[in-house]
């Protein structure tokens, strides 16, 4: 208990002397993540993304615009663009977000779903269609997430050594999906 009291005072007393700049990696918001993953995993991923990503403004950031929601009770005329999942507070969700345990956990959940679903995984593997060499396939799939970057030969060797052959593409896809660097625009 004494420690807590001391911590409170240390925190208070440092308020003025604290540096005025805060450097924290800034992650893309839910719309950015949605855009990247939908491009990679295809139209079938929409349902997964709507359930496991778009409602989580708290972890991912990304304000909602309620005037974009277009719904009609008349059958056959529904034009839903997306929903403001958490009501009016979503109007002021952060534009960007910082890395957090909750975001990491939700990404793990989301990426598991995307790589376990046969349709979405299959769509993501389309980029390998015209690639013959296994090593080149690893590189090409990496480009889906990091189009500006290349894996070195040793990194590719390590991936081949480490990942289970039987579930190679599922595991590789899940790992890349969960990695954080591509989430920073």
């Amino acid at each position: 208990m004494i420690k807590i009291i001391i911590m409170i005072f240390i925190f208070s007393s440092s308020a003025i002397s604290a540096n005025s700049l805060m450097f924290q990696p800034r992650m893309g918001n839910k719309y950015y993540v949605n855009s990247v993953l939908e491009n990679i995993y295809g139209p079938e991923s929409k349902i997964i993304l709507q359930k496991a990503l778009l409602p989580y403004s708290d972890f991912f950031g990304g304000p909602c615009d309620p005037y974009e929601v277009v719904l009609s009770k008349k059958k056959g005329s529904s034009g839903t663009l997306y929903k403001c999942f958490n009501g009016m507070p979503d109007l002021r969700s952060h534009m960007i977000s910082q890395p957090s345990t909750l975001r990491t956990m939700q990404m793990k959940n989301l990426c598991q779903k995307l790589s376990q679903d046969q349709k979405t995984l299959k769509f993501s593997l389309k980029v390998l269609n015209n690639v013959k060499e296994f090593k080149d396939k690893i590189q090409s799939y990496y480009h889906s997430f990091y189009p500006w970057d290349n894996l070195s030969n040793s990194e590719i060797e390590n991936i081949i050594k480490t990942l289970n052959k039987k579930y190679f593409w599922k595991t590789y896809s899940e790992l890349l999906c969960q990695s954080e660097r591509w989430q920073i625009p």
């Binding site: 005037y67 929601v69 277009v70 719904l71 009609s72 009770k73 008349k74 005329s77 529904s78 034009g79």
Partner: peptide, 8 residues
């Protein structure tokens, strides 16, 4: 494309 019947 559609007219909304819903309040905000």
């Amino acid at each position: 494309e559609f007219k909304s019947d819903y309040l905000v």
